[in-house]
Amino acid sequence: MNRGLLICLRGKDLLRKSTRAVQHKIIRHYNCEAESEIKRFIAENTEIVRDQSLTPEISLRLFTVKCRFWTERPELWPFPDPFWAIYWPGGQALARHLLNNPELSAGRKVLDLGCGCGASAIAAKLSGAAHVVANDTDPVAAIATKMNCELNGLEPLPCVTENLIGSEPENWDLILLGDMFYEETLIDSLHNWLNKCVKLQRTQILIGDPGRAQFESHEIKKLLYEEAQFDLPDSVREENYGLTNSTVWSYRPEN
């Protein structure tokens, strides 16, 4: 694996399919690992990255060229789908937008849906959010998020690993979604659930995406309004096969 390939695969949803064949071999370890062992794996197999993104204020533990699993064969990974080890371009734009506009999250109750490495949740907390919950169905992502919180001088944020898409909407003031719009079925589910959150709870929704084909062609795009656009750093462009910028959108189905 290399990091650029992983990004390409996520856009096509092929990484999940490629690991499915070997998942039966690793799922036992995945479920039985103690949290301390997972923390040790993350600490030993990631690099602390700060300056190579849109948010140099935030430090994150990520896979880089210096890390073993940058090039390791997927069947040797101890955990499936290491999306938590990548700082995706949509999440970078979203976190940058929050840091630039702290009033968006200050004093508010915020959910970071599909948090991955936790950057958007961290940006919301650094911007003064009253309560932030990070959500990812991958338990390893939850642990990585907590470690990244500590790396940035924050108490570990609450992390929920249940699939919240389709659940009864809670009274979130703000829901953040970075790089979640990469598969049509998932986009359909998100569209329905986000619409319900807005109608029942008047929740504000912010979405970060670099312009993936599935996102650009979906009908949800008609309900989005551009809030900010950011040029990606050269290193991020190189890893994303020609993507040059990333955009933050607000989801407003009632407009």
Rank of each mutant, 00 (worst) to 15 (best):
G211P: 06
A93S: 06
I175Q: 04
K146Y: 00
E219S: 11
P233V: 04
W193A: 05
C149P: 02
A123S: 03
W249N: 04
L9K: 03
C32P: 00
G242H: 05
T161E: 07
D136P: 06
Y87T: 00
H218P: 00
L60N: 04
Q23Y: 14
G91Q: 03
L186T: 15
V22P: 11
L194T: 09
R28H: 14
A123R: 01
Y87P: 08
P156I: 10
H97R: 03
E183W: 05
P89K: 05
D173L: 05
Q52W: 11
L6F: 10
E239Q: 00
N255D: 14
L111H: 04
K39G: 13
P210E: 07
L104D: 01
E155P: 02
Q52E: 15
L177T: 08
V133S: 02
K125R: 09
H218W: 00
P158M: 05
L194Q: 13
E226T: 15
N2T: 05
C117I: 04
A85I: 05
D234Y: 07
P158Y: 01
D136I: 11
N171E: 14
R108K: 15
K146T: 09
S105L: 09
G107M: 13
I58F: 12
N100D: 15
G107Q: 11
N152S: 08
P158N: 07
S59H: 08
S250P: 07
A95Q: 03
L54W: 06
Q214C: 01
C197Y: 11
N2F: 04
V49A: 08
L14G: 01
I58M: 08
P80A: 06
S246E: 05
P253E: 12
L5P: 04
G211D: 09
L94C: 06
A21P: 04
R16M: 12
E57S: 12
L174Y: 09
K196H: 13
I165Q: 00
G90Q: 04
V198I: 10
Y251R: 01
P80Y: 03
V49F: 00
R50D: 06
N31C: 15
H24K: 15
N255C: 10
C67S: 14
L154V: 07
G114M: 01
F69V: 04
P102N: 06
R40F: 08
E254F: 13
R3M: 13
S59D: 07
S235N: 07
V22C: 14
L154D: 01
E239P: 04
G128W: 02
A141E: 04
Q201L: 09
V132C: 03
V160A: 12
K199I: 12
S105P: 10
F41H: 11
R10C: 14
L94F: 10
V110Q: 05
D112Y: 07
S246R: 09
L113G: 06
R16K: 15
I27P: 08
R50I: 07
R3H: 10
W84M: 03
E168W: 11
V65A: 15
A106E: 14
I220G: 02
R50Y: 11
C117V: 07
E75M: 05
A142V: 15
I165G: 02
L206C: 09
F181D: 02
D179K: 04
V133D: 00
N135T: 08
G114Y: 00
W84K: 02
S167L: 13
I143A: 03
F230G: 06
Q201A: 12
N100P: 10
P156W: 07
N45T: 12
K17S: 11
R202S: 13
W88Q: 01
R50N: 11
L113A: 10
A124G: 03
F215Y: 13
K17W: 11
